[in-house]
């Protein structure tokens, strides 16, 4: 029972951060700030959801479930290393392509322009 409550709390907070990332990628004005929402919102939310699922999986304990929880934990470790790396690669590509940085001065520009 208490394991289910822990799982529900972790998954719900992960979903909250996913909502933050999804709204951020729509609302933020230029490519670089969108990169902030994409790169950070994903790491923590995926971490929370997968840890919640792994804890629920350990509810009835056996060797097979322990291996599955180990694999899920491996995926979270991989996401926490690969997320920042692909963020560097993509934002470097944006710099090389010559994306404009949105500044406070261009009032006329709509956020999407």
């Amino acid at each position: 029972m208490i394991i289910e409550i822990i799982c529900i709390v972790l998954v719900l907070s992960g979903l909250l951060f996913l909502v933050g990332g999804a709204i951020g990628i729509i609302r933020f004005p230029d490519f670089y700030t969108r990169m902030h929402a994409a790169g950070k919102g994903d790491t923590m939310s995926v971490f929370l959801i997968l840890i919640g699922v792994a804890i629920y999986q350990l509810n009835d304990f056996s060797i097979a479930n322990l291996l599955v929880a180990g694999k899920i934990f491996f995926i979270t470790i991989f996401i926490m290393w690969a997320g920042p790396t692909s963020t560097h690669a993509l934002i470097k590509a944006g710099i090389d392509e010559g994306q404009k940085v949105w500044t406070r001065e261009d009032k006329k520009g709509k956020p999407d322009a």
């Binding site: 933050g20 951020g24 950070k40």
Partner: peptide
Amino acid sequence: SNIHILKLAFSSGEIPEVKP
């Protein structure tokens, strides 16, 4: 940092804090 992103995403109007 996720709470920071969440705060920026839900702030109203033109996002006030952003100054890259």
